[in-house]
Design a protein around this nucleic acid. Structure first.
Lengths: 343, 343
DNA sequence: AATAGTATTGCAAATGTTTTCATTTTCAGC
DNA sequence: GCTGAAAATGAAAACATTTGCAATACTATT
């Protein structure tokens, strides 16, 4: 009766209904301790009666927090970043922040564009994946000095705060495991390296390990595949068709490894008796397939949660508290897809 | 030299640098046809020089669009909604919108809370999964009259616009396929039904089909599992341990089916020779595993893209253009995990 | 060259909130 | 009942933008 459906209550409406000033209503919401319990009750009642929903845009405009965080990932397809996104989201939601999600499909120029968009929305902080970013992106961060954190990769020399694992270490671990099982003819299936520090670091480290042991890894033992099971299958078939009698495959990540497993099985190879396959990542579900995937675990859930917390901390901090570079150890998860090579 | 790092350019700064009024700068960005090419050039130059990034918060406050859309999904873990989120995001990003992502982990009360949060941010529209929502949530939509669209499920009688597939149809298709192969002792692994119209619809329809054919499906042929491969494995082991000589398993979705496959294989059962398993969803990757999962395809990518477009359309429309209820057909994807029962 | 019409531009009000500062109220201690 | 301090409240400015309206600058026509 009182008001039309289309009319949306603002803080002034609430104030009138409660019989106080807008200032008091604002205080009741943001600093409840500054207003007397009695008026607080009145205001709460008025809020309920009017169906008032506070306007973060106005809040943000005043210069306060937007209560919004940007999360930039290459893709949300597959479960690659699923666990990370989820845990990051959970961590920051807990602290009152909402996620502005953006994807760039592994393209650094698109990444720059979406980050600009996020800044238009005045996100209070930004998290992105890895350490390969455009020069323009880094400039943007510097000029806007918004809290930023790189997630997933760790590097001592990173130009921005980062929380994640050392990809070299991951590659090393994978190679060492394969080597220790006695494999000598080893193939690689990795995604394109050009704008992807994770893949680059892993592959380089793995190859270095082989080199150091005097194991050859010529160019034709390596093949490229995008992050997609279908692509990985094709790539793997391709590699195996070269008839190099490979006994082990090191894959750039678990999705690719799953593709490789499917391809090998379709070719009639038994895993791990005929061929060993190792992934990197330990994505959600990797340990529960059959055969369970041997992989190098990157603790995505811990990384995401920690990143969320640290980012919020650095926003809340009055001084420009630099987030320290944080390193999460990787670990080998030996499961059912690796074994000594066939005799 | 000119300005400190910490000072952020606003529209007034830009206007001064360009030697025009703020109004003109605003117009240059929002209605370029209203300002002369010459001044437009000047303004663009000034924007670049000052590093200006426009403030959507202020824009939103004036009453204009926030250029933001809320997407509410139960979870981003696993690839259940991965394809949907990605395609929805792609569709709306194309149209200039950024996604505010929220998850509720299959809890309707949490869903209500996160939707309120989205409304605080003045999202221009909201997309959510399925048709089971709290009464308070529906009330909220009505009172705020913000464009809303339910994605994933389709129902003629839905209270809000919806774009998706008919879960009854999906359940039917799965059951019919299993039946047509000659199976008679059929098990079910489904997620909790209580706040999940998708699962409920699918299971009911599947059971109805069996009933109609005079096939019994007693309570102990059905078992519950959350959406997680690990849980599904346990549930499946449980079900198979009951020694009901089941020859086929109908799973609530592909993630559960993957868990069931792993469990069965670990028990030494051959798929599909010893036991048939069918999922629902056709998630990204389901077709590429080995054995490739037989499933009922729900066209997530098409649904997401269409939902994004329709939602934006209904925002742009001046009249309260109701999004029509849209139904995407499901289809059986017969692959490698189903076959006639063993003799 | 004057006029009418159109294309550009500027002024100022409006948007919803927060916070500083000032004012009023409350209350304990005398 | 008075005083002073502390607690609670209110008034108004500030935040960055958009747009209706008015003013000015062009252009073409006569």
């Amino acid at each position: 009766m009182k008001q039309k459906q289309t009319y949306k209550a603002d803080i002034i409406t609430v104030a009138q209904v409660a019989g106080v000033s807008p200032a008091t209503v604002s205080r009741a919401m943001n600093h409840p301790d500054l207003v007397s319990p009695a008026t607080r009750k009145k205001i709460e009642k008025a809020i309920r009666k009017t169906g008032y929903i506070r306007n973060r845009a106005a809040q943000a405009m005043y210069g306060r927090r937007s209560a919004t965080l940007g999360l930039v990932v290459p893709t949300v397809n597959y479960s690659i970043f699923a666990e990370l996104v989820q845990s990051f989201n959970d961590a920051v939601a807990e602290l009152g922040f909402t996620l502005l999600l953006a994807t760039h499909n592994y393209d650094l120029h698109t990444e720059y564009r979406v980050i600009r968009k996020l800044l238009e929305h005045r996100v209070d902080g930004i998290a992105l994946i890895g350490l390969d970013h455009g020069e323009d992106t880094y400039r943007l961060f510097k000029s806007q000095n918004v809290p930023v954190i790189a997630v997933w990769s760790y590097s001592e020399t990173a130009r921005i705060p980062c929380i994640g694992s050392d990809n070299h270490e991951a590659g090393q671990l994978a190679a060492q495991h394969i080597l220790s099982l006695g494999h000598r003819r080893i193939g690689f299936i990795f995604p394109p390296m050009s704008e992807n520090d994770r893949a680059r670091g892993r592959l380089k480290a793995a190859r270095d390990v082989l080199h150091a042991s005097g194991i050859p890894c010529p160019e034709d033992h390596a093949v490229q595949s995008l992050y997609s099971i279908a692509q990985a299958k094709t790539a793997c078939r391709d590699l195996l068709a070269r008839d190099l009698s490979l006994t082990a495959l090191i894959c750039g990540n678990d999705v690719i490894a799953q593709g490789a497993i499917a391809a090998a099985q379709e070719l009639g190879l038994r895993i791990p008796q005929d061929i060993s396959i190792i992934g990197i990542g330990d994505f959600v579900g990797s340990g529960d397939s059959y055969p369970a995937l041997t992989t190098v675990r990157i603790p995505a859930q811990a990384i995401g949660a920690q990143a969320g917390q640290k980012l919020v901390e650095s926003i809340a901090a009055t001084d420009p508290a630099q987030i320290t570079h944080l390193r999460f150890p990787v670990s080998l998860k030996q499961r059912g897809t690796t074994a000594p090579p066939p005799l």
